[in-house]
Design a protein around this nucleic acid. Structure first.
Lengths: 148, 148
DNA sequence: TTACAATATTTGTATATACAAATGTAATCT
DNA sequence: AGATTACATTTGTATATACAAATATTGTAA
């Protein structure tokens, strides 16, 4: 991925700015690929992440604050994201009996089943995205990302 | 930035997945910081990028296809993005006389002036974002990003 | 127990984005 | 010329996201 070529410019960009632009370009590529992998299932990356969090709860229900805490991208609007998943029958939600301010959100059986399929698609997408990076590259990249 | 801490999980995540999640987290941090820097000017990152492209044209007008080509994030909707900038008086647009299918988009004087202010704010945001990375880190990071 | 603050979620509203279809103009072919 | 195709932009529509305000419930203090 050549930044200057993509931006169709020939003047050299300061390293700092170039890094940030480069970062955005890679991010776009990653999210395009991930979105394409999930398209057949009709869910967004965010929705997929919520399903994974719910599976990680192993039967215990999650409430909205928990989801928000653990989501990669914080949304102001987790209620409506969950609404979408309910509409698709992948999760259910009810009022928490012990504290009626809270809700209890769980992944359904159908959600679990479909999530297994999504996992496969996403793993393939991951491999596609990282095709040119070996383990050593990944380790180094993670170390650099830790500095942000 | 510790991925596991942010996701509030204690089980170890496969390196591939971890890299991609890590990447998203850093991207969020970058765009939050950049957005905050631009907030006082009432423009989005995308709008800022378009203004920079127009300045790079050095007086020559740009049409929509050119903008789309050079934008970091491709939008389906550059017309409406330009509409916003026109409303703010930062760019103007007229029909191209030699080919009336095209439009000629230019940055206004006011746009140039405000862009200089935005540059300062963004430079500061860049420094903030990259505060813990030295030049060698940046070079290595760019090399790794090239592999995507 | 009433008033007030804290907690958890939902709703309203404006803006952003994705994708497809529609519009208007120019070029080409017969 | 008239029909067809290609080009450049705009519009419609649905969904996504950000931010603030509203609602409902619980906890606490006088």
């Amino acid at each position: 991925m050549n930044v200057e070529k993509i931006l169709k410019t020939d003047k050299k960009i300061p390293l700092e700015r170039r890094t940030i632009i480069h970062f955005s370009l890679v991010h776009n590529k990653i999210s395009d690929t991930a979105n394409a992998a999930l398209r057949p299932f009709g869910v967004s990356i965010q929705q997929f992440n919520v399903l994974r969090i719910l599976r990680g709860q192993k039967g215990r229900p999650a409430n909205l604050s928990t989801l928000n805490e653990r989501m990669v991208t914080k949304m102001s609007n987790t209620t409506r994201l969950v609404d979408k998943l309910i509409l698709k029958g992948l999760v259910d939600r009810k009022v928490c009996p012990s504290n009626r301010r809270k809700v209890e959100i769980r992944i359904t059986e159908e959600g679990e089943k479909m999530l297994l399929q999504m996992d496969k698609a996403m793993e393939q997408a991951e491999n596609e995205i990282l095709a040119n990076l070996d383990r050593d590259d990944l380790t180094k990249l993670n170390a650099l990302l830790d500095k942000f």
